[in-house]
Design a binder for these strands. Structure first.
Lengths: 333, 333
DNA sequence: CGCATCATCTGGAACGTTCCAGGGCGCACC
DNA sequence: GGTGCGCCCTGGAACGTTCCAGATGATGCG
């Protein structure tokens, strides 16, 4: 009824009048088959609606050519990264297996499911696991951590120079004449510590140590909104925010309160997520170089798998400032 | 070096001094093994760090117990749905295989990759493929389409009563005294047609046929922003929007233009995505019942697989109006 | 005592691939 | 006109499981 057995190599072989080995060769597009036969085999495969069984294929070849990716479904920036990983993986001939972390599905669970599927390497987006857990994992197969730093010799890291990112932001604002520049931070989120440090460094470098203000924030819009309300009472002329999502919340509260942006307060986000690029948000932001990061992450994973020599355990990608409409000259005075 | 071969059934069998068949039985927790032997086998497996190879397992047993899910990485509502699918699947003993659609990876590609992985059924979130393509797919294995309607007897559909959703929205607004109620639509997006129709019906029912205004919108914030700019010139007192994302764009433009919400214009979104729930957005919206929809979608897929009788091909879930802060009484007059 | 029964265990054949060691066969070359 | 060398192509053994048809031995029963 429902399940007339799905066609296999043997079926195609029979129809084309050749051996299954030959069909296998043709399907993999390997040398070793004549042009005419090749055509006939492909025709037969097409007619039967044959699709190779990747399970059997991988079982036999011993390799899965599968990169496991753990990401947070609720993070728009993770969506951007996964998008980049897909295209990076395509170029290398590896496939991606996605495993999401949701409120009801934690990181360990997401990881185990990938391991059962025989992923050869793991790419983790901003994982919450401790360095020890990650190290244990890395002992069994290559692990690449994306967008977070990990102090462990066994795990590879690809991340943005987050401290540098905040230098860019503060330099930009200081250049516009701002002095009272606040920072809304990301708490324990991956990358938050580095950005906080970058902010402090840059302020000191500009001789603004006494104007430093760090407000507790987070990674969501509501975290930003909450922080912005604090901002209204003791008002700086500019603020750098942990990420774009959080910055959106800040913008929203400011706009509603009638505070002009960038007239009265300039705002700088982080990530250059699709959010920031929206015409009506038009957020000045520190861009993470998603294409490079994802390409590097995939390259690192495959290099480890293929035993290629790996130069540095940690690759740090420079950020780039994207100036848009939410920053402008400081109020005179 | 990296890869000392991972232990197999045979390794465990040798260590425990039994046959591999017996180990298989023990690992699957099936009857047919004595208590003492069972203990010894488990001990050996533990010692070797044995993990079953799901690929080999599925290859042999002919079943994969895998549900393929195609979703759009950039849609927050899809993220909500996938989250729900994960928990629904867990309850039934099936696993999910995710395959994302991105700007560089189209729907056919996402689907093919799932087919190669031998997914037993496909769950497609708001797919863009034509009914004909979906039907062809459904001929080979169960296909459940989520959040879109499809006129084809072969594919199952689980969707919200979208027309009804707009009835709720319009009724609510009319009840607040609104007469000039506009609708910003979703164009060719899944569900858009039904919502548009629901809007028209409801307006007619309230005797407001001559006050109907349908503005072209879309599913993103910038679509909403664009539509909102049109709105500013010929201003209604209320507007129903295709989805929450689009409504956010509308809100943003209105707020920036100094138009009070809900003072001067009331806004109703659609989806009740996490976006709408944010304290500072606080969007009145039509909620889709994600837990029910996802549970139904998974149940439908597994029912088909197990040959259970299926009552209706299409399951329509009622929406629910969530009144928050963006709607209020119409201006007197 | 012989035979059926039961629980426990084993060996080997699948599953759909890939990989390897060849088998023909035509053709150039000495 | 053999010999050797390419090219196509084939058959069968793996890969790590599950499944099935028994083997074995203990036990119960007439």
């Amino acid at each position: 009824m429902r399940d007339e057995r799905r066609p296999t190599l043997t079926d195609v072989a029979r129809r084309a009048g050749v051996s299954k080995s030959l069909v296998s060769i043709v399907m993999r597009d390997e040398p070793g088959a004549g042009a005419e036969t090749r055509r006939r085999v492909l025709e037969a495969a097409e007619a039967l609606g044959y699709q190779p069984d990747s399970r059997a294929r991988l079982l036999r070849s011993g390799r899965s050519r599968l990169l496991g990716v753990v990401f947070g479904l609720q993070h728009p920036f993770h969506a951007d990264l996964v998008t980049g990983l897909y295209t990076a993986a395509r170029e290398t001939g590896y496939e991606l297996a996605l495993s999401a972390v949701t409120p009801e599905r934690d990181e360990p669970e997401a990881i185990t499911s990938l391991l059962r599927d025989r992923c050869e390497a793991l790419i983790l987006l901003g994982p919450r696991s401790t360095a020890a857990v990650l190290a244990r994992l890395a002992a069994r197969r290559p692990v690449v951590v994306l967008a977070r730093s990990v102090r462990d010799a066994a795990v590879d890291v690809v991340r943005t120079a987050d401290a540098r990112g905040l230098h860019l932001a503060v330099d930009h604002l200081a250049g516009l004449g701002h002095r009272a520049i606040a920072h809304i931070d990301g708490g324990r989120a991956p990358g938050a510590a580095d950005r906080r440090r970058g902010y402090r460094d840059a302020m000191r470098r500009h001789g603004l140590s006494d104007r430093m203000t760090i407000l507790p924030g987070g990674l969501t819009e509501s975290d930003g909104a909450a922080a912005a309300r604090t901002l209204l009472t003791d008002r700086p002329t500019a603020v750098t925010v942990f990420n774009d999502r959080c910055a959106t919340g800040v913008l929203d509260v400011l706009t509603r309160a009638g505070v002009g942006v960038p007239g009265e307060i300039s705002v700088v986000g982080y990530d250059d997520s699709s959010l920031a690029r929206l015409a009506h948000v038009d957020l000045t932001t520190v861009a993470q170089d998603v294409p490079s990061m994802t390409r590097l992450a995939v390259a690192r994973a495959t290099d480890r798998l293929e035993g290629a020599p790996v130069a540095r355990r940690e690759v740090v990608v420079p950020p780039r400032l994207v100036v848009r409409g939410t920053t402008g000259p400081a109020y005179p005075g």
